[in-house]
Amino acid sequence: MSIGIIGAGALGSNFARALAKSGISATISNSRGPDSLVSLVNELGTSIKAGTVQEAASADIVLVAVRWVDAERVLDGLPAWNGRIVIDGTNPVEFIDPASPDANDPTNPLAVYGIKAVDLGGKHSSQIIRQFVPGARLVKAFNDLNADGLLQPAVAGGRRVLFYSGDDADAKIQVRQVIDASGFFPVDLGALDVGGPLASLNGPLSAHNFVRVS
Rank of each mutant, 00 (worst) to 15 (best):
P134Q: 08
G9K: 12
L189P: 09
V161H: 05
L145K: 10
S39C: 07
S25P: 00
N91A: 09
L11R: 13
A111N: 06
G196Y: 01
T90E: 06
F210I: 07
G9D: 04
P153Y: 10
G7P: 12
S13K: 00
G89F: 09
W68G: 01
R160E: 13
E94S: 15
L205N: 08
G51L: 00
G89V: 09
G195T: 09
P92C: 06
A103Y: 07
D167R: 08
L145A: 09
D102V: 00
V118Y: 04
I85Q: 03
G45L: 14
S206W: 06
A207H: 12
A99Q: 15
D168E: 10
G45V: 10
Y164N: 03
S58A: 15
G158Q: 11
W68D: 01
P79G: 10
I87R: 06
V139C: 07
N108V: 07
V53F: 07
I61W: 02
G83I: 11
S165W: 00
Q131T: 05
D188A: 07
V194A: 13
M1A: 15
G45K: 12
Q177F: 03
G7C: 13
G203D: 10
N202Q: 12
S2A: 12
R159K: 15
R212C: 13
F15Q: 03
F163N: 04
A16P: 02
V86T: 07
R67E: 08
I87F: 06
V118D: 06
F210K: 08
I128M: 10
G121I: 07
G23V: 02
D180S: 13
Q174E: 14
L205P: 02
I129Y: 06
Q131Y: 04
W68H: 04
A207V: 03
T27F: 02
L205E: 02
A147H: 12
Q54M: 04
V64D: 01
A191V: 04
A117S: 14
L138S: 05
Q152R: 09
G157I: 07
T46G: 03
L151R: 11
D105L: 10
H208E: 06
Q54C: 02
D144R: 00
D180Q: 15
E43R: 07
D148A: 14
L40I: 14
G7A: 09
L37A: 01
F142Y: 14
D148E: 14
Q174F: 05
R130I: 05
A16R: 01
A10R: 12
D170K: 13
L138G: 03
S36I: 11
G114R: 05
R159C: 01
G7Q: 04
G33C: 04
E72Q: 14
L192T: 08
W81S: 02
L162C: 10
N91W: 04
V41R: 04
V178H: 02
G9C: 11
S22K: 14
P106T: 11
I128T: 12
D76N: 13
L120T: 03
R17P: 03
S58L: 10
R159E: 05
A56E: 09
G157W: 05
V93R: 11
G45A: 10
D35V: 02
L63K: 00
G135F: 10
D188E: 08
L150Y: 03
V86E: 08
P101W: 11
I24W: 06
L201A: 10
